[in-house]
């Protein structure tokens, strides 16, 4: 983990690191066991996406607060080729890498807020937030 809370994603072993670190911070943010599992799974999908499509990237994991509740925000960024057709990429079953095509759409369902910023040739930044319940 670097100084500013970023975690590099450059190889298969990093996926495990990302999952473990997200779990630690999710516990810190007060997420329930089920919500921890959901955000860790989403992180695993998104980290693998960055690895497969962009050859790597990085993620920042932070605890956020909006006055009433606490949550966890993940920001994945890469300098890859970007996503040409976002709507199609978010559709279940659409894949360009021979996977199941659940990564992006599935991750969106696992979190409360999901935002993708991408342009061809300019890389991709995905922000996913999960709030603690109750």
């Amino acid at each position: 983990m670097t100084q500013d809370g970023h975690l590099a994603i450059s190889g298969n072993a990093d996926l495990v690191m990302v999952r473990q670190q997200v779990r630690v911070v999710a516990v810190e943010a007060g997420l329930s066991l089920i919500d921890q599992t959901k955000i860790v799974t989403a992180a695993s999908e998104l980290a693998r996406n960055a690895l497969i499509h962009a050859g790597g990237g990085r993620v920042s994991i932070v605890v956020v607060e909006d006055g009433r509740r606490r949550g966890l925000r993940l920001t994945f960024s890469d300098e890859g080729p970007g996503i040409p057709d976002l709507d199609r990429a978010l559709t279940d079953g659409f894949t360009t890498a021979g996977g199941l095509g659940l990564g992006l759409g599935g991750s969106r369902r696992l979190v409360d807020e999901f935002d993708v910023a991408s342009a061809p040739g300019k890389g991709t930044t995905i922000t996913a937030t999960k709030w603690a319940r109750g």
């Binding site: 921890q36 599992t37 659940l102 599935g106 696992l110």
Partner: peptide, 14 residues
């Protein structure tokens, strides 16, 4: 399979 894992898989659509 743990309940949390099962619920997550369903949500993921897998």
């Amino acid at each position: 399979m743990r309940p949390a894992v099962a619920i997550t898989l369903v949500e993921l659509g897998l």
